[in-house]
Amino acid sequence: MKGMQNALALDMVFAALADPTRRAILSMLLEDDMAVTDVAEPFEMSLAAISKHLGILGRAGLITQERRGRVTWCKLEPDALRDASIWMQSFGQFEAVNLDAFERFLKAELPDEG
């Protein structure tokens, strides 16, 4: 059962990271905690849309949100990436792929499709 829970958590992290807006938000939060309105500022979308992105990041455990007075603050939770990082490191033998060499390999190994 724990393996299924870990797989689900990993799925949620990767699903959250799949969106470029959410990756941009995480990059912004690397610097410091930010108010939701400040997070939303550089994006050409509604505050409601940003809130949905923040909700997905929160459910994946990548950020936390805290109410301070009238302002909701977002904080990066870098430990949430640990399991994803460990999972990706298991593929370490495939690191540093030279895409040009890979393309040459595919052309040599696969029959001409054209």
Rank of each mutant, 00 (worst) to 15 (best):
M1P: 08
K2W: 14
K2M: 13
G3F: 06
G3M: 15
M4F: 13
M4Q: 15
A7W: 08
A7E: 07
L8D: 02
A9N: 06
L10R: 00
D11R: 06
D11L: 13
D11Y: 12
D11T: 14
M12Y: 09
M12D: 05
M12S: 12
V13Y: 00
V13H: 02
F14G: 02
F14M: 03
A15E: 07
A15V: 13
A15I: 12
A16Y: 04
A16V: 09
A16E: 07
A18L: 07
A18I: 11
T21M: 08
T21D: 13
R22Q: 05
R22M: 00
R23C: 09
R23S: 03
A24C: 04
A24V: 03
A24H: 07
L26V: 08
S27N: 12
S27C: 11
M28Y: 04
M28K: 05
L29E: 01
L30C: 14
E31V: 14
E31L: 13
D32P: 14
D33T: 08
D33L: 05
M34Q: 10
M34L: 15
A35D: 01
T37G: 06
V39S: 02
V39R: 00
V39E: 00
E41M: 12
E41L: 05
F43T: 01
F43L: 00
F43V: 04
M45T: 11
S46V: 00
S46R: 06
A49I: 02
I50V: 11
S51C: 04
K52N: 10
K52H: 13
K52P: 02
H53I: 03
H53Q: 12
L54G: 00
L54F: 00
G55V: 06
I56C: 04
I56H: 03
R59S: 06
R59G: 01
A60P: 00
A60E: 01
A60T: 12
A60V: 04
G61A: 11
I63A: 00
I63S: 00
T64F: 08
Q65I: 07
Q65M: 14
E66T: 13
E66S: 10
R67K: 14
R68G: 07
G69F: 06
V71Q: 01
V71H: 03
T72G: 05
T72C: 08
W73P: 01
C74I: 02
C74L: 03
C74M: 07
E77L: 04
P78K: 01
P78L: 10
A80T: 11
L81C: 07
L81D: 03
L81G: 01
R82Q: 10
D83N: 08
D83P: 15
M88A: 15
F91Y: 03
Q93T: 06
Q93R: 12
Q93A: 11
Q93H: 08
F94P: 02
F94V: 11
F94T: 15
E95S: 09
A96G: 10
A96C: 12
A96P: 05
A96I: 09
V97A: 15
N98V: 11
N98R: 14
N98A: 09
L99Y: 11
L99E: 14
A101I: 14
A101F: 10
F102Y: 12
F102N: 05
E103W: 08
E103G: 10
R104Q: 13
L106Y: 06
K107R: 14
K107Y: 12
K107C: 10
A108M: 05
P111N: 11
D112R: 12
D112F: 09
E113K: 15
